[in-house]
């Protein structure tokens, strides 16, 4: 009996975050748009169901009638994912999450990010770990922005983070996924969803993340700063789907030399 190699295709598990199933694997931010109308149109074109927001001081006495972001992106229609962007310490991040939970009527899903320094916005992992521990203890469901270190990703998962979100490249850089090997290792080890968060510049970057087996991609600048954000939002939606399908299909192996696509039998010359 000859052994035929078993074809192992990845299982098509739906994206589940905090007990909810999502159809879209594209998560989008709401920063850097021209105005709220453009934000709304881009999010609609992206098909995203999970949308990130930042928490900031209310501008006192200025334009009290100005529309609120959450009027355009209603928490009834979208899963609002408040972030801790701008936080450089665990303490500030925890404080921000508590304010966000109050703001969102007790919803406890948060995107934790604790930054290290201004130039790269690279995550400060010791502070991130400290904040994650405090937040999980307080009942938050933590999706964590982290470095693309496979060991740290496992540690965060074991602590109880509900999703790990390694960067593909620095926030807002648009450089694409710089260490595919690490992202792949994180995906292989993880039992919680892995989402590339930050670094995507264009549609092919999102496809690559999905081809590597990521469960989703979170992006903001790549859409908001495209010359036509609405068109790019649609491109990203398609790119995510294409990458996911390719991952599930199982790509052909890479070979060094050519292999003819047309049969050699039956040639008449």
């Amino acid at each position: 009996m000859t052994d035929t190699p078993e074809i192992l295709l990845p299982e098509d598990k739906p994206l589940e975050i905090a007990g909810r199933i999502y159809q879209s694997r594209l998560l989008v931010g709401t920063g850097k748009y021209r105005d709220l109308a453009e934000t709304g149109r881009a999010i609609e074109a992206s098909g995203a169901e999970i949308v990130t927001v930042a928490v900031r001081r209310t501008n006192l006495g200025q334009n009290p009638d100005e529309p609120n972001l959450l009027d355009v992106i209603s928490p009834d229609s979208f899963t609002i994912l408040p972030n801790t962007a701008g936080c450089y310490t665990a303490k500030d991040a925890v404080r921000t999450c508590k304010l966000a939970r109050e703001l969102l009527d007790g919803r406890d899903l948060v995107k934790l990010e604790v930054l290290g320094e201004h130039k790269t916005l690279y995550p400060n992992m010791p502070e991130t770990l400290a904040a994650a521990e405090a937040l999980i203890k307080d009942g938050f469901k933590v999706m964590v922005y982290c470095s693309d270190d496979p060991l740290l990703a496992t540690i965060l998962e074991e602590m109880g983070c509900i999703a790990v979100m390694p960067l593909g490249a620095p926030i807002g850089s648009g450089l694409g996924i710089q260490n595919r090997y690490n992202i792949r290792l994180i995906v292989e080890n993880a039992k919680v969803p892995v989402l590339v968060d930050a670094g995507v510049g264009t549609a092919s970057d999102a496809t690559i993340a999905m081809e590597l087996g990521c469960d989703g991609v979170l992006m903001n600048t790549a859409i908001a700063q495209a010359r036509n954000p609405i068109k790019m939002a649609n491109a990203m939606r398609l790119a995510i789907d294409a990458g996911r399908e390719a991952y599930l299909a199982g790509r052909m192996p890479k070979k060094l030399y050519a292999s003819a696509s047309s049969p050699l039998d039956g040639t008449f010359f």
């Binding site: 930042a54 900031r56 972001l69 609002i80 703001l103 979170l218």
Partner: peptide
């Protein structure tokens, strides 16, 4: 006292 709201962010 801090009074905060949600704004655009990634």
């Amino acid at each position: 006292v801090e009074v905060v709201h949600a704004i655009g962010g990634g």
